[in-house]
Lab assay of single mutants.
Amino acid sequence: MDETGKELVLALYDYQEKSPREVTMKKGDILTLLNSTNKDWWKVEVNDRQGFVPAAYVKKL
Protein backbone atom coordinates (compact mmCIF):
# COMPACT_ATOMS: atom_id res chain seq x y z
CA MET A 1 0.00 0.00 0.00
CA ASP A 2 1.10 3.54 -0.62
CA GLU A 3 0.86 6.45 1.82
CA THR A 4 -2.83 7.00 0.94
CA GLY A 5 -3.73 3.38 1.74
CA LYS A 6 -4.19 2.32 -1.88
CA GLU A 7 -3.02 -1.13 -2.92
CA LEU A 8 -0.03 -1.30 -5.24
CA VAL A 9 0.99 -3.85 -7.85
CA LEU A 10 4.31 -4.54 -9.57
CA ALA A 11 4.50 -5.00 -13.34
CA LEU A 12 6.15 -8.36 -13.99
CA TYR A 13 6.31 -7.85 -17.77
CA ASP A 14 6.09 -5.09 -20.35
CA TYR A 15 2.58 -4.61 -21.74
CA GLN A 16 1.58 -2.42 -24.67
CA GLU A 17 -2.03 -1.26 -24.66
CA LYS A 18 -4.13 -2.70 -27.47
CA SER A 19 -7.27 -0.59 -26.92
CA PRO A 20 -8.14 2.78 -25.33
CA ARG A 21 -9.41 0.95 -22.20
CA GLU A 22 -5.95 -0.49 -21.48
CA VAL A 23 -2.73 1.12 -20.26
CA THR A 24 0.89 0.53 -21.20
CA MET A 25 3.32 -0.54 -18.49
CA LYS A 26 6.96 -1.54 -18.32
CA LYS A 27 8.45 -4.36 -16.26
CA GLY A 28 9.25 -2.98 -12.81
CA ASP A 29 6.59 -0.24 -12.87
CA ILE A 30 4.62 0.26 -9.65
CA LEU A 31 0.92 0.79 -10.37
CA THR A 32 -2.01 1.70 -8.15
CA LEU A 33 -4.59 -1.10 -8.10
CA LEU A 34 -8.13 0.25 -8.51
CA ASN A 35 -10.12 -2.95 -9.08
CA SER A 36 -9.21 -6.64 -9.09
CA THR A 37 -12.65 -8.28 -9.12
CA ASN A 38 -12.12 -9.65 -12.64
CA LYS A 39 -9.68 -12.56 -12.52
CA ASP A 40 -8.22 -11.82 -15.97
CA TRP A 41 -8.04 -7.99 -16.19
CA TRP A 42 -7.27 -5.59 -13.35
CA LYS A 43 -7.97 -1.87 -13.43
CA VAL A 44 -4.91 0.17 -12.48
CA GLU A 45 -3.63 3.72 -12.54
CA VAL A 46 -0.20 4.59 -13.92
CA ASN A 47 1.18 7.97 -15.00
CA ASP A 48 -2.19 9.66 -14.26
CA ARG A 49 -3.99 7.25 -16.61
CA GLN A 50 -6.51 4.60 -15.63
CA GLY A 51 -7.08 1.41 -17.57
CA PHE A 52 -6.85 -2.34 -17.63
CA VAL A 53 -3.85 -4.68 -17.68
CA PRO A 54 -3.71 -8.50 -17.73
CA ALA A 55 -3.88 -9.74 -14.14
CA ALA A 56 -1.20 -12.34 -14.89
CA TYR A 57 1.24 -9.51 -15.75
CA VAL A 58 1.16 -7.91 -12.28
CA LYS A 59 1.70 -8.97 -8.66
CA LYS A 60 0.23 -7.39 -5.54
CA LEU A 61 2.82 -5.79 -3.26
Rank of each mutant, 00 (worst) to 15 (best):
M1T: 14
M1I: 13
M1A: 14
M1C: 13
M1N: 12
M1W: 13
D2R: 04
D2M: 13
D2E: 14
D2Q: 15
D2F: 10
D2H: 14
E3S: 14
E3M: 12
E3N: 14
E3Y: 08
E3W: 08
E3C: 14
E3F: 10
E3H: 15
E3R: 05
E3D: 13
T4E: 13
T4L: 13
T4N: 14
T4C: 14
T4K: 09
T4Y: 13
T4S: 14
G5W: 11
G5T: 13
G5K: 14
G5M: 12
G5L: 12
G5Q: 13
K6G: 11
K6N: 09
K6C: 12
K6S: 09
K6R: 13
K6Y: 12
E7Q: 14
E7V: 15
E7F: 11
E7I: 14
E7A: 10
E7N: 09
L8Y: 15
L8R: 09
V9D: 00
V9K: 00
V9R: 02
V9M: 05
V9Y: 10
V9L: 12
V9I: 08
L10Y: 10
L10V: 15
L10A: 06
A11S: 05
A11R: 01
A11T: 03
L12E: 04
L12T: 04
L12I: 11
L12G: 02
L12N: 03
L12F: 03
Y13Q: 13
Y13C: 14
Y13I: 09
Y13S: 07
Y13P: 00
Y13V: 11
Y13L: 09
Y13R: 15
D14E: 05
D14G: 06
D14Q: 04
D14M: 03
D14V: 01
Y15S: 01
Y15N: 00
Y15P: 01
Y15V: 01
Q16W: 14
Q16D: 14
Q16E: 14
Q16L: 13
Q16S: 12
Q16P: 06
Q16R: 11
E17T: 08
E17R: 13
K18W: 04
K18M: 12
K18C: 10
K18F: 06
S19W: 06
S19A: 09
S19G: 12
S19H: 11
S19P: 04
S19N: 13
S19R: 08
P20W: 10
P20V: 09
P20H: 11
P20Q: 08
P20A: 11
P20D: 13
P20S: 11
P20K: 09
P20G: 09
R21Q: 13
R21N: 15
R21W: 15
R21G: 15
R21P: 05
E22Y: 06
E22V: 05
E22C: 06
E22G: 12
E22L: 04
E22R: 04
V23P: 01
V23E: 01
V23A: 05
V23K: 02
V23R: 02
V23D: 00
V23W: 05
V23C: 08
T24V: 03
T24F: 04
T24D: 04
T24L: 02
M25D: 00
M25C: 06
M25R: 00
M25Y: 01
M25H: 01
M25A: 02
M25L: 08
M25N: 00
M25T: 03
K26R: 12
K26I: 08
K26C: 10
K26F: 10
K26W: 10
K26T: 07
K26P: 01
K27G: 05
K27V: 07
K27P: 03
K27F: 05
G28M: 03
G28C: 08
G28Q: 02
G28V: 00
G28L: 02
D29L: 05
D29Y: 05
D29S: 07
D29P: 00
D29Q: 15
D29I: 04
I30S: 03
I30D: 00
I30G: 01
I30H: 04
I30V: 10
L31N: 01
L31P: 01
L31Y: 08
L31A: 07
L31D: 00
L31E: 01
L31M: 14
L31G: 11
L31K: 00
T32E: 09
T32Q: 12
T32A: 11
T32M: 10
T32G: 08
T32P: 15
L33H: 01
L33W: 01
L33C: 07
L34K: 06
L34P: 00
L34E: 03
L34F: 04
L34N: 02
L34R: 03
L34S: 02
L34A: 02
L34V: 12
L34H: 05
L34Q: 03
N35R: 06
N35I: 08
N35S: 12
N35P: 03
N35L: 09
N35K: 06
S36R: 08
S36I: 06
S36E: 13
S36H: 09
S36N: 09
S36V: 07
T37W: 09
T37M: 09
T37P: 04
T37S: 14
T37C: 11
T37H: 12
T37R: 09
N38Q: 09
N38I: 05
N38W: 07
N38S: 10
N38A: 08
N38H: 12
N38Y: 08
N38T: 06
K39I: 10
K39Y: 08
K39W: 07
K39H: 11
K39D: 11
K39G: 09
K39T: 09
K39E: 10
K39R: 11
K39F: 08
D40N: 13
D40M: 13
D40E: 12
D40G: 09
D40L: 12
D40I: 14
D40P: 02
D40S: 11
D40R: 11
D40Y: 15
D40F: 15
W41G: 01
W41P: 00
W41A: 02
W41E: 04
W41V: 03
W41T: 02
W42A: 04
W42D: 00
W42Q: 01
W42M: 03
W42F: 07
K43E: 14
K43T: 08
K43F: 15
K43W: 14
K43D: 03
K43L: 15
K43Y: 15
V44N: 01
V44T: 01
V44S: 00
V44R: 00
V44L: 03
V44G: 00
E45H: 07
E45W: 07
E45R: 10
E45T: 07
E45A: 11
E45I: 09
E45V: 09
V46T: 14
V46I: 15
V46G: 13
V46W: 08
V46D: 09
V46A: 15
N47D: 13
N47W: 09
N47V: 11
N47H: 12
N47M: 11
N47G: 15
N47T: 08
N47A: 12
N47L: 11
D48G: 15
D48Y: 09
D48L: 10
D48H: 11
D48R: 09
R49K: 11
R49H: 07
R49Y: 05
R49C: 06
Q50E: 10
Q50T: 12
Q50R: 13
Q50I: 14
Q50N: 08
Q50C: 09
G51Y: 04
G51K: 02
G51C: 03
G51T: 02
G51R: 02
G51V: 04
F52E: 04
F52N: 04
F52K: 03
F52I: 06
F52R: 03
F52V: 07
V53H: 00
V53T: 02
V53N: 01
V53F: 00
V53D: 01
V53W: 01
P54G: 02
P54L: 03
P54T: 01
P54M: 03
P54F: 03
P54S: 02
P54C: 04
P54H: 02
P54A: 02
A55T: 06
A55I: 04
A55K: 07
A55V: 06
A55G: 04
A55C: 07
A56E: 09
A56R: 15
A56M: 11
A56V: 09
A56W: 08
Y57F: 13
Y57N: 05
Y57E: 02
Y57H: 06
Y57L: 14
Y57K: 06
Y57V: 05
Y57Q: 05
V58D: 01
V58G: 01
V58M: 05
V58E: 01
V58Q: 00
V58K: 00
V58P: 01
V58F: 05
K59R: 13
K59V: 15
K59M: 14
K59I: 15
K59Q: 14
K59D: 07
K59H: 10
K59L: 14
K60D: 04
K60S: 07
K60G: 05
K60A: 07
K60R: 14
K60H: 09
L61Q: 06
L61F: 10
L61H: 05
L61N: 03
L61E: 04
L61A: 05
L61M: 09
L61C: 11
